[in-house]
Write a protein that binds this DNA or RNA. Structure first.
Lengths: 202, 202
DNA sequence: CAATAAAACTGATCATACTCATATTTATCC
DNA sequence: GGATAAATATGAGTATGATCAGTTTTATTG
């Protein structure tokens, strides 16, 4: 921990930020995203209504604030679990299923979060989301790279495009799940089937 | 045209609907989606503020109203253009590039539209969006199926999963473009590279 | 055609995300 | 440590998407 010499100001800000995130997380989980008002979050965090918008550009932005650390841990865990699998297809399935299992705890909220991730507002938000995506795609690249060593992927396969293609497949299926076009069972089947297809080629 | 025997009521509704769509389209194009108020649309369409919400459940929903027919034609045109190509990879690239060329005329609006398509509100909207997606994916399936006949795709490749996988790849790249992570040139390169990858397998 | 019912429309009203002029708190300087 | 500047917080105010009780228009019935 390199948390030395936090000035009074920085302490207060960090503390307030923490209260806001905690309040937002609790209310979103309890009442849902739309049903939660920014007033309620402000009250629960014991800050004024306007203060909220010094820490998040918008209500939507609160979602990113709330989920950022959570997502970083999730990606880490998904990667750890995926690495234990011997076959590339299982690694990919495990990686993505770990995400979905997490999202399944609160599908409406995950839906709101995905909406926000897919519609970044400005430069600041873009770089935040980009950081997260880089993390997710980076792990995917590592998984694919290691599969090359086990002869489960061609050596010529470029890692970044491969990771992005595979993620695209996952993402579209996730949207189908979150928007109620398919259920979890179908999602599992579809994802696996499509990933197999991508590994083999059409 | 099977437009026989429109009752007075149906006539009025169709006319009003048309005015609302036209007004919304014009204002969105001219001032952008966020900067356009529902009041302005109502005024331009010469209906009361509340009437708007009898034709669209929400402001966001107006986007779907505005773009539905447009999208149907676009898919048709993209399919026609794609069929002229001899190679599967070129067919896919052409199909998707036709979409993007259309979206490029107004990127912010396309971004708003994609956001809405990815976040359907209720059952009615879901079926509307579903209809559109079925159309898009259906054409994709046809393209892939015909490639089987030319030995550019395996016979065993299941069409629907293949179409969905390929679309997923496109969709994720489209989001990157719309959110400003990449520019058009990069998009073109990335899309082609990733589609080639999916055709060959990893 | 008058009476009744059903559908469609209206616009004042409401709820709430977000702003901004003002006040308060914290840091800096001599 | 008092004065000044900078950063942060406040909450009343604003803009606007959405609602809904009341009105108007259209259809139906006898």
């Amino acid at each position: 921990m390199a948390k030395v010499a936090l000035s009074r100001r920085e302490q207060n800000k960090a503390e307030k930020r923490g209260r806001i995130i905690a309040a937002a997380r609790a209310l979103f989980a309890h009442k849902g995203f739309e049903a939660t008002t920014t007033q309620q979050i402000a009250e629960a965090a014991e800050v004024a209504a306007g203060t909220l918008f010094l820490y998040a550009r918008s209500k939507d932005d609160l979602l990113i604030l709330v989920f950022r650390e959570e997502m970083i841990e999730l990606v880490e865990r998904a990667y750890r679990l995926a690495r234990r699998e011997p076959a590339l297809i299982e690694q990919l399935v495990t990686y993505f299923e770990t995400f979905v299992a997490h999202h399944e705890r609160d599908l409406p909220l995950a839906r709101a979060l995905m909406r926000q991730l897919a519609h970044v507002a400005g430069a600041d938000e873009r770089s935040e989301v980009n950081e997260l995506m880089t993390n997710v795609l980076g792990r995917l690249s590592l998984i694919i790279e290691s599969a090359k060593g086990r002869s489960q992927a061609r050596f010529e396969t470029p890692l970044t495009p491969a990771a992005r293609a595979v993620f695209g497949v996952y993402y579209f299926n996730l949207l189908s799940l979150l928007n109620g076009y398919i259920n979890r069972e179908q999602f599992d089947r579809d994802l696996r089937g499509q990933l197999e297809l991508v590994l083999r080629g059409l």
